[in-house]
């Protein structure tokens, strides 16, 4: 690789950082290889870069940081697809929708991105329970004013 030009500038991406998404993402089924980048000044946000089309890029974050009660069961089919076993370590991030102002950012809790760290395999899992929506506000302005 290791340098990739992305929408967010040049990034260094090592071979072992590449995560394969066998099904792509809903709406982006042709994108199969991604990398997570964590620039220090963007903490707690990370870039989720599709290496097959670095012109677009996603911003993701740790859902448990903003929603401590967030939880879901990974369905059996998803477990098979990303080869999850008892010993697997998983990373869960959710896609952030920023538009123009960070204050108005929402996250998609209904479709978390689940990554099997060891296997470097990932999937955006759609949760069938109606508990979460695709647009939860990240920041509750009432509390911060």
């Amino acid at each position: 690789m290791p340098k990739v030009q992305t929408k967010f500038g040049e990034m260094e991406i090592e071979e072992q950082d590449i995560i394969r998404f066998p099904l792509g993402l809903p709406g982006f089924e042709h994108l199969r290889r991604f990398a997570l980048q964590s620039p220090a000044d963007l903490e707690p946000f990370r870039f989720f870069v599709p290496l097959d089309n670095p012109d677009i890029s996603f911003i993701v974050t740790d859902p448990f940081l903003f929603f401590p009660d967030y939880e879901f069961d990974l369905d059996d089919m998803s477990k098979t697809e990303i080869e999850v076993t008892e010993e697997s370590r998983l990373t869960v991030v959710v896609i952030v929708n920023v538009r123009d102002q960070i204050e108005n950012a929402t996250v998609n809790l209904a479709a978390p991105v689940v990554i099997n760290d060891g296997k470097r395999l990932g999937k955006q899992v759609i949760l069938s329970s109606s508990r979460y929506t695709t647009r939860h506000r990240l920041f509750n302005l009432e509390h911060t004013k």
């Binding site: 809903p26 963007l42 759609i126």
Partner: peptide, 28 residues
């Protein structure tokens, strides 16, 4: 409608037009 909403929000998220510098600034 859930499937459609996931598609829609993914497309919006990918098309976000905030540059990383702006994002970092706003975050600060």
């Amino acid at each position: 409608e859930l499937l459609e909403s996931v598609l829609q929000t993914n497309r919006e998220a990918a098309g976000g037009n905030l540059a990383p510098q702006q994002l970092a600034e706003q975050l600060k």
